[in-house]
Nucleic acid binder design. Sequence first.
RNA 1: GCCGGUGUAGCUCAGGGGUAGAGCAACUGAUUCGUAAUCAGUAGGUCGUCGGUUCAAAUCCGAUCACCGGCUCCA
Length: 602
Amino acid sequence: MSAPVTSPEPAPIALPKTSESAELLKIRHSMSHVMAMAVQKLFPAARVTIGPWTENGFYYDFDNPDPFTEADLKAIKKEMGKIIGRRLPLERIAVTREEAEAKIRAQNEPYKLEILEGLQEPITLYTLGDQWWDLCAGPHVANTSELNPKAFELESVAGAYWRGDETKAQLQRIYGTAWETAEQLAEYQRRKEEALRRDHRRLGKDLDLFSIEDEAGAGLVFWHPRGARMRLLIEDFWRQTHFADGYELLYTPHVADISLWKTSGHLDFYAESMFGPMQVDEREYQLRPMNCPFHVLTYASTLRSYRELPIRWAELGTVYRYERPGVMHGLMRVRGFTQDDAHVFCLPEQIGDEILRVLNLTETILSTFDFKTYEINLSTRPEKSIGDDAVWDLATKGLIDALDRKGWSYKIDEGGGAFYGPKIDLKIEDAIGRMWQCSTIQLDFNLPERFDLNYVAADGSRQRPIMIHRAIFGSLERFFGIMTENYAGDFPFWLAPEQVRLLPVTDEVVPYAEDLLSRLKAAGIRASLDRSGDRLGKLIRTGEQQKIPVLAVIGAKEAEDHAVSLRSRRDGDLGSVAINALLEAGQEANQTRAARLNLPAA
RNA sequence: GCCGGUGUAGCUCAGGGGUAGAGCAACUGAUUCGUAAUCAGUAGGUCGUCGGUUCAAAUCCGAUCACCGGCUCCA
């Protein structure tokens, strides 16, 4: 065995976020001023509004009679380069409200005037040379010579509303990115390309996992055989862990009489997210946007005793929600999706234990997909809410108690809960550092009340149960998209739709390969045989492009030895492996949900 | 829904009022080959959809649908 020849690892280029670097914050903030100055030079009619930094750059919103084009961006960038080259000083000046107002009026900047009205003294502005200034709290670099003209780029132009309010003026937002060095900029652009390479819409098409069909409508997902096989594996795993954790599973209808949604209250506050009702016979039916009322009805179908509690019911419940045109996005935002929904009905004193169970189950499930870093938010009682103080107090303490026992740190979003109960949200971090919210645990004091749920307590009285909603994946579609991007389509062995592909070197060995194929399938290993007749190099290339975890080369030698020559996508050449060893390793990997084959040492 | 952009073969894209183009993929044949592309041939499209202008529309105009980047919203 020879040691691989490696060139020395290049030092990784760190890309600090604005919130992590005071220097970058100043650079980006100043860059937005330079851009605004450039825009107003080239487009004198443009009115300025706000121009903050973002985590990787900056933007500035303008009110301009015409939208900016790509060509405009080029011209603006060029003008910015000139401004930077003039080494203009940026100076902070404290002014009185009256002075500021006079200056703004002189320049006819209505948005700035509106901003000024909301400001407390002291009011500051920043100059940029003697030609341009902006109402701004800073901080900024002292001189444009501190900005690197080779380390910024204007990225895109987009519509945005004044103050984020869609009833207000439509503005033109120009996004840019800025760094200390050209190398950082290049690295940032490389990472953007990496995100593009991982895009689940791209991978879903390339790997033939799913599609969204124009004819059927936006936001409706077609799972192709490969994607469906993966979804089934995910669902099987999910069911297994739920049964093991004391859940029972339900199946409930996708439509129901609209009165159900009147009782639940959804018609009052959720109607605009619902598909319209449909008339059937003499009744109106509603496609469901949520599963909860169905579980509630199931609970209410008979008289419950305190001895039955906690009741844990889960369902892979498909729901339909009306999303406005233009908001759909691959699998991440769709109109029909399946929630891994569960509801726990319990006694007040069981809250802490039940939440802890959910946290443990969440960790078990998410870590199986290699999501091991979480960010947790606890949201407490908002001002407008129902239920009495004692219940809220008990419930919130239950959530905190469970998080503490789990040993997870969390942030508290004071008053961020729903009107009907406090909640825990969990975000997962993917392989390229993006955070995604999937899991949520939500206490609900509202639905039990509305549906008059109760149980018979030890003393014979009727009591109201506590209801916990929870989802771990959130939506299977969305989770599938996130997971696909996390793995960049390079799925672990247990989850890959096609695990092993047999590559015959010549036609002579095809019968042997056929026999091996049926043995692999009988062992529950998802295998195929490439019958294209292409040369080995081409077969390997195709297999690698389709991201098949294990390629098994079969030539005369292998047929003779009852072996295969394995090539692992993750580990490279694994050499010759006996068929029995492959069968065993494949079965074991499937049982243990392993990322790779564990082969006996040769 | 709003702002901007884009819809041409399965995929990536070129063309731009007058007979629809390439590469890859597919299919067929030859080759029987050892770790990321063998060679040759064949087939494939009412140019997203509907309407208008024109002798003539894939091309110009309008509407509509979908997608892309954002805004708003959100699992």
